[in-house]
């Protein structure tokens, strides 16, 4: 059985599998991965989190029927195939929901004195496929439902974290 791991035996059968994914898997041990994402890693989320370390946003996709799903599950909810593969998405999409936190959990680099934006983005890969993160590089007034975004990365500690940037806003 091969489940949710881009570096697994079946990865080569995927046309869209990037050549370096098995290298990414080899880079970080299970112990190191779990220490980098305390409390967040299990067998089903490991491939997604390993992808982050390589600045790749990996979302599970079914190798049988092509359907994407999030968060990562060991089977495809559309056809129950166990052949799901953590697969890169472009990160381009449209803001579906938008919240501004005036207070929240402590996190490095997050200052709630300016309300901290958190958006759920509908990814271009599939209707209803969504990913949540913050938006960098724009004032809060511009961060609105319906706006187009693209993927960017910030560092939290020494861990790359996927974030969004309003489309067309160049990187600082």
């Amino acid at each position: 059985m091969n489940v949710g791991n881009a570096g697994g035996r079946t990865a080569g059968s995927m046309n869209n599998e990037p050549a370096d994914m098995s290298v990414a898997d080899a880079d970080v041990s299970d112990e190191e991965l779990c220490s980098l994402f305390p409390g967040a890693v299990d067998r089903d989320s490991a491939a997604h989190l390993r992808g982050r370390l390589r600045r790749r946003l990996l979302i599970n996709r079914c190798a049988e029927c092509g359907t994407w799903h999030a968060p990562p599950k060991p089977v495809c909810p559309s056809c129950l195939s166990e052949h799901v593969v953590a697969t890169p998405v472009s990160g381009a999409g449209t803001i579906f929901m938008a919240v501004f936190l005036h207070q929240g959990p402590p996190a490095e680099g997050v200052d709630y004195s300016t309300p901290y934006p958190v958006v759920t983005v509908e990814l271009d890969e599939q209707p209803g496929l969504r990913y949540s993160s913050t938006v960098v590089g724009s004032p809060n007034e511009e961060i609105q439902i319906g706006r187009r975004v693209e993927l960017d990365w910030i560092m939290r500690g020494n861990v790359p974290t996927p974030v969004f940037r309003l489309a067309g806003k160049s990187r600082a």
Binding site: G39, L101, A107, V118, T134, V163
Partner: peptide, 13 residues
Amino acid sequence: GGVVPPESVAGSA
């Protein structure tokens, strides 16, 4: 348990 990052919309958010 575990660390909930501010970017999560699980729970109250």
